[in-house]
Nucleic acid binder design. Structure first.
Lengths: 224, 224
DNA sequence: CTTGACAATGGACAAGTGTTCACCTAAACA
DNA sequence: TGTTTAGGTGAACACTTGTCCATTGTCAAG
Protein backbone atom coordinates (compact mmCIF):
# COMPACT_ATOMS: atom_id res chain seq x y z
CA UNK A 1 0.00 0.00 0.00
CA UNK A 2 1.13 3.49 -0.73
CA UNK A 3 2.64 4.78 2.45
CA UNK A 4 2.21 8.36 1.28
CA UNK A 5 -1.54 8.21 1.16
CA UNK A 6 -3.09 9.26 4.40
CA UNK A 7 -3.97 5.95 5.89
CA UNK A 8 -7.43 5.62 7.23
CA UNK A 9 -6.87 4.92 10.89
CA UNK A 10 -9.68 3.27 12.72
CA UNK A 11 -9.85 5.32 15.85
CA UNK A 12 -12.79 6.79 17.62
CA UNK A 13 -12.48 9.88 15.54
CA UNK A 14 -13.17 8.05 12.32
CA UNK A 15 -16.69 7.08 13.09
CA UNK A 16 -19.13 7.50 10.26
CA UNK A 17 -22.03 9.85 10.64
CA UNK A 18 -24.33 6.89 10.89
CA UNK A 19 -22.09 5.16 13.37
CA UNK A 20 -21.98 8.24 15.52
CA UNK A 21 -25.76 8.38 15.44
CA UNK A 22 -26.01 4.80 16.56
CA UNK A 23 -23.47 5.34 19.29
CA UNK A 24 -25.21 8.45 20.50
CA UNK A 25 -28.53 6.70 20.61
CA UNK A 26 -27.10 3.83 22.61
CA UNK A 27 -25.54 6.19 25.11
CA UNK A 28 -28.60 8.31 25.33
CA UNK A 29 -30.90 5.35 25.76
CA UNK A 30 -28.87 4.24 28.71
CA UNK A 31 -28.94 7.70 30.21
CA UNK A 32 -32.64 8.01 29.97
CA UNK A 33 -33.71 4.50 30.82
CA UNK A 34 -30.93 3.18 32.96
CA UNK A 35 -30.35 0.13 30.82
CA UNK A 36 -28.98 -0.52 27.37
CA UNK A 37 -31.13 -0.92 24.29
CA UNK A 38 -31.65 -4.20 22.53
CA UNK A 39 -30.68 -4.53 18.90
CA UNK A 40 -34.29 -4.47 17.84
CA UNK A 41 -34.87 -1.29 19.79
CA UNK A 42 -32.04 0.33 17.89
CA UNK A 43 -33.48 -1.06 14.70
CA UNK A 44 -36.85 0.43 15.41
CA UNK A 45 -35.38 3.79 16.38
CA UNK A 46 -33.67 4.13 13.02
CA UNK A 47 -36.41 2.50 11.02
CA UNK A 48 -34.27 -0.33 9.74
CA UNK A 49 -36.14 -3.23 8.26
CA UNK A 50 -33.49 -5.67 9.32
CA UNK A 51 -31.72 -6.21 12.58
CA UNK A 52 -28.66 -6.90 10.53
CA UNK A 53 -28.36 -3.24 9.68
CA UNK A 54 -27.78 -2.67 13.36
CA UNK A 55 -25.43 -5.62 13.61
CA UNK A 56 -23.26 -4.16 10.91
CA UNK A 57 -22.92 -0.89 12.76
CA UNK A 58 -22.27 -2.57 16.05
CA UNK A 59 -19.56 -4.67 14.49
CA UNK A 60 -18.00 -1.55 13.05
CA UNK A 61 -18.20 0.29 16.36
CA UNK A 62 -16.62 -2.65 18.08
CA UNK A 63 -13.89 -2.86 15.50
CA UNK A 64 -13.14 0.80 16.01
CA UNK A 65 -13.15 0.22 19.73
CA UNK A 66 -15.93 2.66 20.37
CA UNK A 67 -17.94 0.06 22.22
CA UNK A 68 -17.53 -3.32 23.83
CA UNK A 69 -20.09 -6.04 24.07
CA UNK A 70 -20.55 -9.42 25.66
CA UNK A 71 -21.27 -11.80 22.78
CA UNK A 72 -24.66 -13.40 22.92
CA UNK A 73 -25.84 -11.56 25.97
CA UNK A 74 -28.72 -9.18 25.92
CA UNK A 75 -28.35 -5.47 26.47
CA UNK A 76 -24.74 -5.64 27.54
CA UNK A 77 -22.85 -2.67 26.21
CA UNK A 78 -19.81 -0.84 27.34
CA UNK A 79 -18.92 2.52 25.89
CA UNK A 80 -15.32 3.54 25.38
CA UNK A 81 -15.06 7.25 25.64
CA UNK A 82 -11.86 8.73 24.32
CA UNK A 83 -9.99 11.44 26.14
CA UNK A 84 -10.63 14.01 23.48
CA UNK A 85 -12.48 17.00 24.85
CA UNK A 86 -14.63 17.47 21.81
CA UNK A 87 -16.55 14.31 22.33
CA UNK A 88 -20.15 14.53 21.34
CA UNK A 89 -21.79 15.62 24.51
CA UNK A 90 -25.11 14.38 25.57
CA UNK A 91 -28.14 15.19 23.50
CA UNK A 92 -29.90 18.48 23.96
CA UNK A 93 -32.40 17.22 26.44
CA UNK A 94 -29.64 16.23 28.83
CA UNK A 95 -28.26 19.70 29.26
CA UNK A 96 -29.01 19.61 32.95
CA UNK A 97 -25.57 18.23 33.39
CA UNK A 98 -23.43 21.07 34.51
CA UNK A 99 -21.19 21.99 31.70
CA UNK A 100 -18.22 24.06 32.66
CA UNK A 101 -16.01 25.63 30.06
CA UNK A 102 -12.36 24.98 30.52
CA UNK A 103 -10.47 28.16 29.86
CA UNK A 104 -7.03 27.57 28.63
CA UNK A 105 -6.14 31.17 28.33
CA UNK A 106 -8.38 33.84 29.67
CA UNK A 107 -5.60 36.34 30.04
CA UNK A 108 -7.23 38.78 27.69
CA UNK A 109 -10.35 39.42 29.63
CA UNK A 110 -12.82 38.71 32.31
CA UNK A 111 -14.89 35.57 32.30
CA UNK A 112 -17.81 37.52 30.96
CA UNK A 113 -15.91 38.40 27.88
CA UNK A 114 -14.32 35.08 27.27
CA UNK A 115 -14.84 34.02 23.74
CA UNK A 116 -15.67 30.47 22.73
CA UNK A 117 -12.28 30.27 21.11
CA UNK A 118 -10.76 30.64 24.54
CA UNK A 119 -12.12 27.30 25.55
CA UNK A 120 -9.87 24.34 25.38
CA UNK A 121 -12.59 21.95 26.31
CA UNK A 122 -15.53 21.44 28.51
CA UNK A 123 -15.65 19.89 31.90
CA UNK A 124 -18.94 18.43 32.94
CA UNK A 125 -19.02 18.55 36.67
CA UNK A 126 -21.53 18.81 39.36
CA UNK A 127 -20.19 18.31 42.81
CA UNK A 128 -23.21 18.92 44.92
CA UNK A 129 -22.05 17.28 48.05
CA UNK A 130 -18.82 19.18 47.71
CA UNK A 131 -20.72 22.38 48.19
CA UNK A 132 -20.91 23.52 44.62
CA UNK A 133 -23.52 25.98 43.64
CA UNK A 134 -23.67 24.64 40.17
CA UNK A 135 -26.05 27.17 38.76
CA UNK A 136 -23.55 29.92 39.01
CA UNK A 137 -21.25 30.98 36.30
CA UNK A 138 -18.75 28.41 37.28
CA UNK A 139 -15.81 27.80 35.07
CA UNK A 140 -12.67 25.77 35.13
CA UNK A 141 -9.12 26.86 34.67
CA UNK A 142 -6.24 24.72 33.66
CA UNK A 143 -3.23 25.50 35.74
CA UNK A 144 0.00 26.48 34.08
CA UNK A 145 3.14 26.89 36.03
CA UNK A 146 4.23 26.29 39.55
CA UNK A 147 2.96 29.31 41.38
CA UNK A 148 0.73 27.26 43.67
CA UNK A 149 2.75 24.12 44.26
CA UNK A 150 2.89 24.77 47.96
CA UNK A 151 -0.86 24.54 48.02
CA UNK A 152 -0.57 21.22 46.21
CA UNK A 153 -1.89 22.58 42.98
CA UNK A 154 0.27 21.56 40.07
CA UNK A 155 0.82 22.28 36.46
CA UNK A 156 -1.96 20.75 34.40
CA UNK A 157 -4.51 20.54 37.17
CA UNK A 158 -7.95 21.91 36.54
CA UNK A 159 -9.29 24.33 39.06
CA UNK A 160 -12.97 24.99 39.35
CA UNK A 161 -13.69 28.64 39.88
CA UNK A 162 -16.78 30.36 41.14
CA UNK A 163 -17.00 34.05 40.44
CA UNK A 164 -17.63 35.78 43.75
CA UNK A 165 -16.02 37.82 46.47
CA UNK A 166 -12.94 36.41 48.07
CA UNK A 167 -12.26 36.07 51.73
CA UNK A 168 -9.01 35.83 53.57
CA UNK A 169 -7.28 32.59 52.78
CA UNK A 170 -9.20 31.79 49.62
CA UNK A 171 -7.36 30.67 46.58
CA UNK A 172 -8.47 32.94 43.78
CA UNK A 173 -8.13 33.28 40.06
CA UNK A 174 -6.67 36.72 39.60
CA UNK A 175 -5.79 38.86 36.65
CA UNK A 176 -2.21 40.05 36.93
CA UNK A 177 -0.35 41.70 34.10
CA UNK A 178 -2.97 40.58 31.64
CA UNK A 179 -2.68 36.98 32.72
CA UNK A 180 -4.93 34.90 34.87
CA UNK A 181 -3.08 33.12 37.61
CA UNK A 182 -3.92 31.43 40.85
CA UNK A 183 -3.01 33.24 44.02
CA UNK A 184 -3.80 33.13 47.69
CA UNK A 185 -6.00 36.01 48.79
CA UNK A 186 -4.92 37.61 52.03
CA UNK A 187 -7.04 40.12 53.87
CA UNK A 188 -6.24 40.99 57.44
CA UNK A 189 -8.51 43.26 59.45
CA UNK A 190 -7.59 46.87 59.00
CA UNK A 191 -5.15 46.17 56.20
CA UNK A 192 -5.36 46.26 52.47
CA UNK A 193 -5.85 42.92 50.83
CA UNK A 194 -3.09 41.46 48.72
CA UNK A 195 -2.34 38.36 46.69
CA UNK A 196 0.39 35.90 47.36
CA UNK A 197 1.89 33.10 45.33
CA UNK A 198 2.14 29.76 47.07
CA UNK A 199 5.63 28.91 46.05
CA UNK A 200 8.49 29.64 48.36
CA UNK A 201 10.74 30.32 45.43
CA UNK A 202 8.41 33.05 44.20
CA UNK A 203 7.55 35.03 47.26
CA UNK A 204 5.53 37.46 45.22
CA UNK A 205 3.05 39.86 46.65
CA UNK A 206 0.52 41.64 44.54
CA UNK A 207 -1.81 44.48 45.28
CA UNK A 208 -5.48 43.83 44.71
CA UNK A 209 -6.75 46.20 42.10
CA UNK A 210 -10.30 46.44 41.03
CA UNK A 211 -11.60 43.62 38.87
CA UNK A 212 -8.48 41.77 39.68
CA UNK A 213 -10.02 38.82 41.39
CA UNK A 214 -12.12 36.81 39.01
CA UNK A 215 -13.34 34.17 41.32
CA UNK A 216 -12.65 31.78 44.10
CA UNK A 217 -11.23 28.33 43.53
CA UNK A 218 -13.57 25.68 44.86
CA UNK A 219 -11.93 22.44 43.86
CA UNK A 220 -9.07 20.87 42.01
CA UNK A 221 -9.53 18.11 39.50
CA UNK A 222 -6.57 16.22 38.23
CA UNK A 223 -6.61 13.43 35.71
CA UNK A 224 -4.30 10.57 36.47
CA UNK B 1 -57.51 -0.89 63.28
CA UNK B 2 -55.48 -1.71 66.31
CA UNK B 3 -52.87 0.97 66.58
CA UNK B 4 -50.75 -1.24 68.78
CA UNK B 5 -50.09 -3.86 66.18
CA UNK B 6 -46.94 -3.10 64.26
CA UNK B 7 -48.33 -2.11 60.94
CA UNK B 8 -46.57 -3.63 57.99
CA UNK B 9 -45.50 -0.69 55.93
CA UNK B 10 -44.28 -1.39 52.47
CA UNK B 11 -41.39 0.98 52.25
CA UNK B 12 -37.82 0.47 51.28
CA UNK B 13 -36.81 -0.10 54.85
CA UNK B 14 -38.91 -3.19 55.27
CA UNK B 15 -36.88 -5.33 52.98
CA UNK B 16 -35.97 -8.78 54.16
CA UNK B 17 -32.35 -9.63 54.73
CA UNK B 18 -32.45 -11.78 51.66
CA UNK B 19 -34.17 -9.12 49.65
CA UNK B 20 -31.55 -6.59 50.64
CA UNK B 21 -28.86 -9.00 49.55
CA UNK B 22 -30.49 -9.44 46.18
CA UNK B 23 -30.94 -5.72 45.78
CA UNK B 24 -27.35 -5.02 46.74
CA UNK B 25 -26.06 -7.57 44.30
CA UNK B 26 -28.11 -6.11 41.49
CA UNK B 27 -26.80 -2.65 42.20
CA UNK B 28 -23.23 -3.76 42.47
CA UNK B 29 -23.37 -5.87 39.38
CA UNK B 30 -24.40 -2.82 37.49
CA UNK B 31 -21.61 -0.79 39.03
CA UNK B 32 -18.94 -3.18 38.13
CA UNK B 33 -20.13 -4.27 34.74
CA UNK B 34 -22.12 -1.37 33.44
CA UNK B 35 -25.22 -3.42 32.77
CA UNK B 36 -27.80 -5.22 34.84
CA UNK B 37 -27.66 -8.89 35.70
CA UNK B 38 -29.98 -11.45 34.21
CA UNK B 39 -32.15 -13.53 36.50
CA UNK B 40 -29.97 -16.53 35.96
CA UNK B 41 -26.90 -14.55 36.90
CA UNK B 42 -28.55 -13.62 40.17
CA UNK B 43 -29.55 -17.23 40.61
CA UNK B 44 -26.00 -18.40 40.14
CA UNK B 45 -24.59 -15.78 42.48
CA UNK B 46 -26.79 -16.99 45.31
CA UNK B 47 -26.59 -20.64 44.44
CA UNK B 48 -30.29 -21.05 43.83
CA UNK B 49 -31.30 -24.16 41.97
CA UNK B 50 -34.26 -22.47 40.42
CA UNK B 51 -34.73 -19.19 38.69
CA UNK B 52 -38.02 -18.94 40.43
CA UNK B 53 -36.28 -18.27 43.71
CA UNK B 54 -35.02 -15.09 42.11
CA UNK B 55 -38.40 -14.34 40.61
CA UNK B 56 -40.00 -14.44 43.99
CA UNK B 57 -37.56 -11.92 45.39
CA UNK B 58 -37.85 -9.67 42.40
CA UNK B 59 -41.62 -9.69 42.69
CA UNK B 60 -41.30 -8.81 46.35
CA UNK B 61 -38.83 -6.03 45.62
CA UNK B 62 -41.12 -4.67 42.99
CA UNK B 63 -44.09 -4.84 45.28
CA UNK B 64 -42.17 -2.90 47.89
CA UNK B 65 -41.17 -0.43 45.23
CA UNK B 66 -37.50 -1.01 45.68
CA UNK B 67 -37.03 -1.76 42.02
CA UNK B 68 -38.84 -1.39 38.74
CA UNK B 69 -38.67 -3.69 35.79
CA UNK B 70 -39.89 -3.87 32.24
CA UNK B 71 -41.88 -7.10 32.04
CA UNK B 72 -40.41 -9.62 29.68
CA UNK B 73 -37.39 -7.59 28.79
CA UNK B 74 -33.90 -8.70 29.58
CA UNK B 75 -31.64 -6.95 32.03
CA UNK B 76 -33.92 -3.99 32.48
CA UNK B 77 -33.85 -2.85 36.04
CA UNK B 78 -34.43 0.43 37.69
CA UNK B 79 -33.44 0.95 41.28
CA UNK B 80 -35.49 3.19 43.48
CA UNK B 81 -33.10 4.67 45.92
CA UNK B 82 -34.75 6.10 48.97
CA UNK B 83 -34.47 9.84 49.37
CA UNK B 84 -31.88 9.81 52.06
CA UNK B 85 -32.28 13.10 53.86
CA UNK B 86 -28.60 13.90 54.01
CA UNK B 87 -28.14 13.65 50.29
CA UNK B 88 -29.88 16.24 48.26
CA UNK B 89 -31.19 14.36 45.26
CA UNK B 90 -31.27 16.03 41.93
CA UNK B 91 -34.53 17.10 40.40
CA UNK B 92 -36.29 14.45 38.42
CA UNK B 93 -35.40 15.88 35.08
CA UNK B 94 -31.73 15.85 35.90
CA UNK B 95 -31.30 12.21 36.70
CA UNK B 96 -28.66 12.02 34.02
CA UNK B 97 -26.26 13.58 36.41
CA UNK B 98 -23.84 10.97 37.49
CA UNK B 99 -24.14 9.90 41.03
CA UNK B 100 -21.03 8.37 42.45
CA UNK B 101 -21.07 6.84 45.89
CA UNK B 102 -18.29 7.99 48.13
CA UNK B 103 -16.93 5.10 50.09
CA UNK B 104 -15.48 6.29 53.30
CA UNK B 105 -14.37 2.99 54.56
CA UNK B 106 -14.41 -0.08 52.42
CA UNK B 107 -11.76 -1.76 54.42
CA UNK B 108 -13.93 -4.65 55.40
CA UNK B 109 -14.38 -6.16 52.00
CA UNK B 110 -14.46 -6.04 48.29
CA UNK B 111 -16.76 -3.68 46.48
CA UNK B 112 -19.15 -6.59 45.99
CA UNK B 113 -19.63 -6.74 49.68
CA UNK B 114 -19.81 -3.09 50.38
CA UNK B 115 -22.91 -2.30 52.29
CA UNK B 116 -24.91 0.85 51.80
CA UNK B 117 -23.74 1.91 55.21
CA UNK B 118 -20.25 2.11 53.78
CA UNK B 119 -21.17 5.24 51.92
CA UNK B 120 -20.27 8.52 53.49
CA UNK B 121 -21.98 10.54 50.83
CA UNK B 122 -22.51 10.84 47.17
CA UNK B 123 -20.47 12.75 44.69
CA UNK B 124 -22.28 13.86 41.63
CA UNK B 125 -19.77 14.13 38.90
CA UNK B 126 -19.55 13.65 35.24
CA UNK B 127 -16.23 14.48 33.78
CA UNK B 128 -16.70 13.60 30.18
CA UNK B 129 -13.78 15.49 28.87
CA UNK B 130 -11.64 13.88 31.47
CA UNK B 131 -12.01 10.60 29.70
CA UNK B 132 -14.38 8.89 32.02
CA UNK B 133 -15.93 5.76 30.70
CA UNK B 134 -19.00 4.03 31.87
CA UNK B 135 -20.26 6.25 34.61
CA UNK B 136 -22.11 3.71 36.63
CA UNK B 137 -19.25 1.54 37.66
CA UNK B 138 -17.37 4.45 39.01
CA UNK B 139 -16.99 5.17 42.67
CA UNK B 140 -15.03 7.62 44.73
CA UNK B 141 -12.72 7.00 47.60
CA UNK B 142 -11.65 9.48 50.18
CA UNK B 143 -7.96 9.29 50.76
CA UNK B 144 -6.65 8.67 54.22
CA UNK B 145 -2.99 8.89 55.00
CA UNK B 146 0.11 9.90 53.21
CA UNK B 147 0.98 6.85 51.18
CA UNK B 148 0.67 8.66 47.88
CA UNK B 149 1.99 12.10 48.66
CA UNK B 150 4.77 11.73 46.13
CA UNK B 151 2.09 11.38 43.49
CA UNK B 152 0.53 14.57 44.80
CA UNK B 153 -2.44 12.83 46.31
CA UNK B 154 -3.07 13.99 49.82
CA UNK B 155 -5.06 13.10 52.86
CA UNK B 156 -8.67 14.06 52.35
CA UNK B 157 -8.61 14.08 48.58
CA UNK B 158 -11.27 12.19 46.74
CA UNK B 159 -10.08 9.77 44.15
CA UNK B 160 -12.40 8.59 41.43
CA UNK B 161 -12.00 4.90 40.80
CA UNK B 162 -13.05 2.78 37.89
CA UNK B 163 -13.14 -0.93 38.51
CA UNK B 164 -11.08 -2.56 35.81
CA UNK B 165 -7.80 -4.18 35.04
CA UNK B 166 -4.72 -2.20 35.87
CA UNK B 167 -1.78 -1.56 33.63
CA UNK B 168 1.78 -0.73 34.50
CA UNK B 169 2.01 2.70 36.06
CA UNK B 170 -1.64 3.02 37.00
CA UNK B 171 -2.58 4.21 40.40
CA UNK B 172 -4.94 1.64 41.80
CA UNK B 173 -7.20 1.10 44.76
CA UNK B 174 -5.95 -2.09 46.28
CA UNK B 175 -7.00 -4.23 49.18
CA UNK B 176 -4.08 -4.81 51.50
CA UNK B 177 -4.44 -6.36 54.93
CA UNK B 178 -8.17 -5.81 54.84
CA UNK B 179 -7.81 -2.15 54.04
CA UNK B 180 -8.26 -0.33 50.81
CA UNK B 181 -5.35 1.88 49.97
CA UNK B 182 -3.96 3.63 46.96
CA UNK B 183 -0.86 2.21 45.40
CA UNK B 184 1.10 2.39 42.20
CA UNK B 185 0.68 -0.71 40.08
CA UNK B 186 3.91 -1.94 38.54
CA UNK B 187 3.98 -4.67 35.93
CA UNK B 188 7.09 -5.17 33.86
CA UNK B 189 7.07 -7.68 31.01
CA UNK B 190 7.97 -11.13 32.19
CA UNK B 191 7.76 -10.19 35.83
CA UNK B 192 5.13 -10.51 38.46
CA UNK B 193 3.16 -7.38 39.11
CA UNK B 194 3.50 -5.65 42.44
CA UNK B 195 2.20 -2.60 44.24
CA UNK B 196 4.24 0.30 45.45
CA UNK B 197 3.51 3.16 47.78
CA UNK B 198 4.38 6.61 46.51
CA UNK B 199 6.02 7.93 49.61
CA UNK B 200 9.75 7.88 49.97
CA UNK B 201 9.38 7.36 53.67
CA UNK B 202 7.33 4.25 53.10
CA UNK B 203 9.15 2.35 50.38
CA UNK B 204 6.67 -0.48 50.62
CA UNK B 205 6.25 -3.18 48.07
CA UNK B 206 3.25 -5.44 47.95
CA UNK B 207 2.56 -8.58 46.00
CA UNK B 208 -0.56 -8.57 43.88
CA UNK B 209 -2.85 -11.25 45.09
CA UNK B 210 -6.10 -12.17 43.57
CA UNK B 211 -8.95 -9.75 44.06
CA UNK B 212 -6.41 -7.31 45.37
CA UNK B 213 -6.80 -4.54 42.84
CA UNK B 214 -10.24 -3.05 43.03
CA UNK B 215 -9.93 -0.46 40.35
CA UNK B 216 -7.89 2.18 38.64
CA UNK B 217 -7.77 5.77 39.82
CA UNK B 218 -8.91 8.13 37.11
CA UNK B 219 -8.90 11.50 38.75
CA UNK B 220 -8.42 13.38 41.96
CA UNK B 221 -10.89 15.88 43.29
CA UNK B 222 -9.94 18.12 46.13
CA UNK B 223 -12.10 20.71 47.76
CA UNK B 224 -10.36 23.90 48.61
C1' DC C 1 -54.26 -25.55 64.63
C1' DT C 2 -54.73 -22.61 60.78
C1' DT C 3 -53.20 -18.80 58.13
C1' DG C 4 -50.07 -16.11 55.76
C1' DA C 5 -45.54 -14.35 54.62
C1' DC C 6 -41.04 -15.91 53.33
C1' DA C 7 -37.83 -18.94 50.96
C1' DA C 8 -36.77 -22.25 47.73
C1' DT C 9 -37.12 -26.52 44.23
C1' DG C 10 -37.87 -28.36 39.44
C1' DG C 11 -39.36 -28.27 35.15
C1' DA C 12 -41.30 -26.42 31.13
C1' DC C 13 -42.52 -22.82 27.82
C1' DA C 14 -42.46 -18.71 25.02
C1' DA C 15 -40.92 -14.41 24.08
C1' DG C 16 -36.84 -11.58 23.80
C1' DT C 17 -32.71 -11.23 21.58
C1' DG C 18 -28.16 -11.83 19.30
C1' DT C 19 -26.33 -14.04 15.24
C1' DT C 20 -25.70 -15.61 10.66
C1' DC C 21 -26.23 -16.48 5.64
C1' DA C 22 -27.26 -14.84 1.11
C1' DC C 23 -27.89 -10.91 -1.48
C1' DC C 24 -28.41 -5.95 -2.85
C1' DT C 25 -27.06 -0.74 -3.84
C1' DA C 26 -24.14 3.19 -4.11
C1' DA C 27 -20.08 5.77 -3.68
C1' DA C 28 -15.03 5.95 -3.39
C1' DC C 29 -10.70 4.34 -5.07
C1' DA C 30 -6.62 2.87 -7.71
C1' DT D 1 -12.80 -1.47 -14.56
C1' DG D 2 -12.69 -4.22 -10.84
C1' DT D 3 -12.36 -3.74 -5.70
C1' DT D 4 -13.29 -2.07 -1.36
C1' DT D 5 -16.15 0.10 2.16
C1' DA D 6 -20.41 1.81 4.07
C1' DG D 7 -25.13 0.86 4.43
C1' DG D 8 -28.99 -1.98 3.91
C1' DT D 9 -32.85 -6.07 3.04
C1' DG D 10 -34.99 -10.52 4.44
C1' DA D 11 -35.41 -14.60 6.57
C1' DA D 12 -34.17 -18.13 9.44
C1' DC D 13 -31.93 -20.03 13.57
C1' DA D 14 -30.57 -20.79 18.34
C1' DC D 15 -29.26 -19.17 22.59
C1' DT D 16 -30.71 -16.06 26.35
C1' DT D 17 -33.87 -14.87 29.38
C1' DG D 18 -38.29 -13.84 31.70
C1' DT D 19 -42.34 -16.23 33.16
C1' DC D 20 -45.42 -19.57 35.11
C1' DC D 21 -47.04 -23.98 37.06
C1' DA D 22 -47.15 -27.18 40.90
C1' DT D 23 -44.91 -28.31 45.39
C1' DT D 24 -42.25 -28.23 49.72
C1' DG D 25 -40.72 -26.38 53.99
C1' DT D 26 -40.12 -22.93 57.88
C1' DC D 27 -41.73 -19.75 61.13
C1' DA D 28 -44.36 -16.28 63.57
C1' DA D 29 -49.09 -14.44 64.43
C1' DG D 30 -53.89 -14.99 65.39
Amino acid sequence: MDKCSPKQVNTMKDLTTRQKEILTFIEHHEWRNGYWPSIREIQEKFGFRSTNAVMGHLRALEKKEAIERIPGQARTFRINRPDSPEIPSMPDDATEVVDIPVMGDIAAGYPDRVEPAGEIGRLQVDIQSAGFSSRRRTFALQVRGESMVDAEIYDGDMVIIEPRDAHDGDIVAALIDGETTLKRYIKKPGEHPYLKAENKFYPELYPVTELCVQGVAKAVVRNL
